[in-house]
Every structure is written in structure tokens, then in C-alpha cells.
Amino acid sequence: MTVDTYWGQTDDELYERLGAALLGEGLGVSPDDRDSHRKFGRSWFANKTRELQRIVCHAEVVQGLLGTSTSDRVIDGGAVYELLQGHGHDPVSAAILAVLIARIGLGTFCATAPPKP
């Protein structure tokens, strides 16, 4: 599973896959639908943005990328993917998050990052 798999998907599709990857399959007391995965993926991303910024934005490799005058989404995505995997994300959610963050743009994503502890 690599980042490349997800570049062609829309944000909605990515959030749906992210929700499904995070929640997994199990036994439940109520039915669910695809929409609920998309919504969960979105709300999870919004809720965890600060945590993701802490992982991504202060990393040396990202600091290096932020310092360059041009940006390449594929390179940015690859760097984020490696970082997230290193912080315990499974390959699927790491790849999806990498695409979402690279699409936002590292500069924009990290502009509101909390200060380095």
C-alpha cells in the first residue's frame, strides 16, 4: 500500500476510506452506512489536526521541505507517509492522511501548528 494508490481519489472518497480504516470491521449494536465512515473520517481529521501537526510540522524532513521555494505534492506526501508510519499509523491510514495533508499543502497545514514543545 503506497501513497500513489490514493492520489486519484476525491477527498470524500479518502475520508470514507479513512473512516473505514480507523473504525475497522466488527460486531456492532447498530447498523452503519458508508456516509457514516466519511463523516467519521472528516470529524476525526478535524479533531486530530493539532496532533497531526505536532507529528508532521516539527519534523526535520518537513522543516526542510517548508524551507524550499517550490513544493512538490508527491514528495510532500511521501515524507508525511513515512512520518506517520513511524508514529504508529497503519500503512492505509498513513497513506490516506499523507494525500489529504499534501493536498492541503504543507505550508498551509503547518501555518497553524502549535509551537514545538
Binding site: L23, G24, E25, G26, L27, G28, V29, S30, D32, S36, K39, F40, S43, W44, N47
Partner: peptide, 13 residues
């Protein structure tokens, strides 16, 4: 707990 607007409880093995 999960932050979900949907009524849901699930066990993932």
C-alpha cells in the same frame, strides 16, 4: 469512546 454523531457501538477483534 468515539466522536460520532451516529448511534453506534462496535467491537473490533
Amino acid at each position: 469512546s468515539t466522536l460520532r454523531e451516529e448511534v453506534s457501538a462496535q467491537l473490533t477483534p
